[in-house]
């Protein structure tokens, strides 16, 4: 069995996080009826063992790498872009549930195009309107699938 030749602290952290999730599953499964708890216990135990193997192997690799030159850190612009994209997506998805599909989509698309540096107002406006209208027409009108109206506009969250 091969693992990557170099290790990062985050590898150990990720393995430990998975291991703790497995422990949680095993402990919780003890309170289930016998049949309901058997499979989760078996699978979580196998996954726990494997994640501990990863954690231990990477830990020893890290120890042997100590003093070596660190490299491969991401430039800060990547981190900024990641956070911007993540926050926009989170904002849109939660916003859609609160203020409804139409309002949130118009706001999200306009703000995203602007944030990502697209400055052609005419194209942006056409795209925002067309995208919102096409998705609405396909889902709501053609397929009769109700899109979120939003809590503020009287939608029901169930």
């Amino acid at each position: 069995m091969k693992l990557a030749k170099t290790a990062k602290k985050s590898d150990v952290a990720a393995a430990c996080l998975i291991a703790s999730l497995c422990v949680y599953v095993i402990v919780s499964a003890r309170h289930f009826p016998e049949r309901a708890g058997l499979f989760p216990t078996v699978i979580a135990s196998i996954t726990l063992t494997l994640s501990l193997v990863i954690a231990v192997v990477n830990f020893f690799k890290l120890a042997s790498q100590r003093g070596m030159e660190r490299g491969g850190d991401k430039p800060s612009v990547y981190v900024t872009r990641f956070w911007i994209t993540g926050l926009l997506i989170v904002g849109y998805m939660i916003g859609m549930l609160i203020i409804g599909y139409i309002t949130s989509t118009i706001l999200y698309l306009s703000f995203s195009f602007w944030t990502y540096g697209y400055r052609n107002k005419l194209v942006s406006t056409i795209l925002v309107v067309c995208m919102t209208a096409v998705v609405y027409a396909v889902f709501e009108m053609a397929l009769d699938i109700k899109l979120p109206v939003g809590l503020l506009l009287g939608g029901v969250m169930y």
């Binding site: 994209t85 926009l88 997506i89 849109y92 998805m93 859609m96 989509t105 999200y108 698309l109 995203s112 195009f113 990502y116 540096g117 697209y118 194209v123 795209l127 995208m131 919102t132 998705v135």
Partner: peptide, 12 residues
Amino acid sequence: RLLAPCVVVFCA
């Protein structure tokens, strides 16, 4: 920068 937000809309 134009496509990605539209894909997000479809995903949501």
